[in-house]
Computed example of a mutant assay.
Amino acid sequence: MIRTLSAALACALLAACASTTPATDASPSAASTAATNTELATAIAGNWRSLEETARDVYRHPAETLALFGVQPDHTVVEITPGGGWYSAILAPYLRERGRYIAAVVDPASLPAGGSRDYQQRAKDGLAKRFAEAPAQFDRAQFAAYDPKTPVFGAPNSADVVLTFRNVHNWRMADQAEGMFKGFFNVLKPGGVLGVVEHRAKANVPADDMTGYVGEAQVIALAQAAGFRLDARSEINANPRDTKDHPNGVWTLPPSNRHDPADAEKYRAIGESDRMTLRFVKPAR
């Protein structure tokens, strides 16, 4: 049965777990859950995160989102195409002592020469530079370079959690989405979690849609076709102010702000895009 969590309930997971009696013997103790919450809060509050990054917490809700996805400090977590490392700056320090953080990036060598290869090389180099400049937080972070045509993110059944934030639209436009979801399924352990956050369209959109939005039913269908079971969905990252009819799609909104300067206040008042937040599970059998 799919569980629907409100934002308020997701927040309560962090605040109230310490006083909640476990439902079963397999559940973590209240003390261990409280310790986990403290470790996550410490990572989110870390002074290695820039002011620009922390300013986006109000839109991205990292504590509530990672609580929904069940990320624990001893997990092996694969984050797919982490970009500039917004979530890396939380996850890598959080997992540093007992877990394992893996940034899965496109292998530039798998792409033909040109702009796309250069872009992916700059992205990889930029993230590696960030990791190297703060070894106390990132010295144990690892990279997994993958070919988007035949994506492999690690040894089969080796990851506890796979996370992807606002990437599915790119894979759909490149006709890579099915292969990516199959790759997620393969690298996860039985019972492992796939966490997806994506810009949410009003309804299904064509594969070549250029707005950056994707239908929630389309993302669910992709995951289910790869073998996943939808386990939870949440409105943690919803934004009802997003009308989804902007001239430059999601990139009209913050933080990209591809709009006329005269419209700055209008789009600032909207904020970042409306987003679905979905948790899938790889069946144990």
Rank of each mutant, 00 (worst) to 15 (best):
R3L: 15
R3E: 13
L14M: 04
C17A: 12
P22F: 00
P22N: 02
T36Y: 01
I44T: 04
A45D: 15
A45T: 06
W48Q: 14
W48S: 03
E53H: 09
T54N: 02
R56G: 06
E64G: 00
T65A: 13
A67S: 04
L68T: 00
I80R: 11
P82L: 04
P82A: 15
G84S: 15
G85Y: 11
W86S: 11
S88R: 02
P93F: 07
Y94V: 11
L95Y: 14
R96G: 05
R96Y: 05
I102A: 06
I102K: 02
A103Y: 07
A103E: 13
A109Y: 10
P112H: 09
A113F: 06
G115L: 10
R117H: 10
A123R: 06
K124V: 14
A128Q: 15
K129A: 06
A141I: 10
Y146W: 12
D147P: 02
P148I: 13
K149V: 08
P151W: 11
V152W: 03
F153S: 00
A155R: 13
K182L: 04
V187I: 08
K189A: 05
G192E: 08
V193N: 09
V193W: 00
A203E: 12
N204G: 04
A207K: 08
D208L: 09
D208N: 15
D209G: 03
V214M: 10
G215M: 05
G215P: 05
I220C: 13
A223K: 00
G227L: 00
D231P: 03
S234A: 12
S234N: 05
N237P: 07
A238P: 04
R241E: 14
K244L: 10
V250D: 07
W251P: 02
T252M: 06
T252L: 11
S256T: 14
D260E: 10
D260I: 05
D263L: 05
E272L: 10
E272T: 06
S273Q: 05
F280Y: 04
R285C: 08
